[in-house]
Amino acid sequence: METYYSEEELKTLGIKKYGFNVKVSRHVALYRPEELEIGNNVRIDDFTIISGKVVLGDYIHIAQSCGLYGGNSGIYMEDYSGISSHVVIYATSNDYSGRFMTNPTVPEKYTTGINCPVYLKKHVIIGCMSVILPGVTVEEGCAVGAMSLVNKSLVAWGIYAGAPVRRLKDRSKHLLELADKLEEEVSRLGKQIHDLKVGDYIEKKNLITYESAVQYASITGDNNPIHFETKEAYQSYYGRPVAHGMILAGFISGAIGGAMPGAGCIYEAQTFSFIRPVFYGDTILTRITVISIDAERNRVTLKTECFNQNHDCVLDGEAVVLPRKKSLPF
């Protein structure tokens, strides 16, 4: 049996929301999973307990035997953050002052709760067996050494350790360059279905040139004289040469294959309506917009539009594409 739940099994756990490439160990205990949100590229290892409101971003690792007790206030881990084994994070606790009784076996009227959200910002790493108390914000880029007690918020880009924790020195920001390289590499791979949402769009500009028409005609054999410097073109309805409409279709194909959703996608269907003519020297803005998503069938419907430099729509249509399904190669 696999160590982690399969995609189909994840659907049965009652998790509020999760992205792609999510690995949850079969030995993880989830309490109130309907309040758990998980981003993309997340791994949660054996014997971890997650209880209450917990929100995890992208590229997050939670090592074995951790405890995340979000209560009603929540624990929020941003992108590229991680916690080592046996780390415990509390967004909820009891009052230890002696003014109230403690522990959940006692009726609530004799106890009082402390509920404050905990935030781990981007690129935070927490060493093994550390404890983080309610109300703490660990700012971006902080590293906390093993067996530390984090009872106060930490200033960004520091290395901390101790019980209670104290700042030892500044932390290098070189990892930000590595993160940029990673995101650039991922962008070249193309988006998956879970990366997309209705309303997402991209725009790309292209110049229509006479040379592009000559090249298009040589490839396709469409040598209709209305597209060239001929008598027929100047006697036509438009009174001058008009560019091939299917050059615009190429712009749309390029935008879909290059960015929305990008590399690895499969073009399944496309409709076109040619609204206005396009002439040589026109600058065309191509816009691709997500209008519906069928995650079950891995299909996205896109609105495909082209506009000239006067903001007039010259082409309108819809496309159906299949985003890439293969996970990242790392």
Rank of each mutant, 00 (worst) to 15 (best):
V118W: 03
A213N: 02
S148G: 06
Q309G: 08
R166N: 13
Y80K: 01
G71W: 05
Y31Q: 12
M1F: 01
D294N: 15
G262N: 07
D45E: 15
Y31W: 13
S218H: 15
G82R: 15
I44Y: 03
Y201D: 09
I256V: 09
K152G: 06
V144S: 06
R171S: 04
P107T: 02
L36I: 14
Q235C: 04
Q192G: 14
E8K: 14
H194D: 14
R167K: 15
K326I: 13
D95Q: 07
E232V: 15
T137K: 10
K303S: 11
L68K: 03
F330I: 15
E139I: 01
A295L: 06
E35P: 01
I50E: 04
K122C: 09
I293L: 11
N151G: 03
L302I: 10
G14Q: 06
E139C: 06
V136F: 03
P107G: 02
G262A: 05
E268P: 00
K181S: 13
G67T: 04
H227D: 06
Y31N: 15
V131F: 04
V155P: 04
P329H: 01
F251G: 02
S148I: 06
E34K: 10
Y267G: 04
H227I: 05
S130I: 09
A163C: 09
N310C: 01
A146C: 14
L328D: 12
G199D: 08
F47D: 15
D58E: 08
L56E: 13
Y160N: 11
I89T: 11
H123Q: 09
F100H: 15
D170L: 09
N151F: 10
Q270R: 05
T12F: 00
R166T: 14
K173H: 14
S153H: 09
K109Q: 10
I15M: 07
P323K: 01
N115Q: 11
G141S: 02
K204D: 07
C313D: 01
K231D: 12
H123D: 07
S73T: 12
K169I: 00
P261N: 03
D79F: 00
G98A: 08
L10A: 02
L120I: 11
A259N: 04
E183V: 02
G257T: 00
I202R: 01
E318F: 06
A295K: 15
D282F: 02
V131M: 11
E185Y: 13
G239P: 10
K181N: 13
C116L: 14
L30T: 06
S6A: 00
D95K: 14
T111R: 12
L322M: 13
P329Q: 08
G67D: 03
A213K: 02
R43F: 04
N40R: 11
S292D: 14
F279H: 09
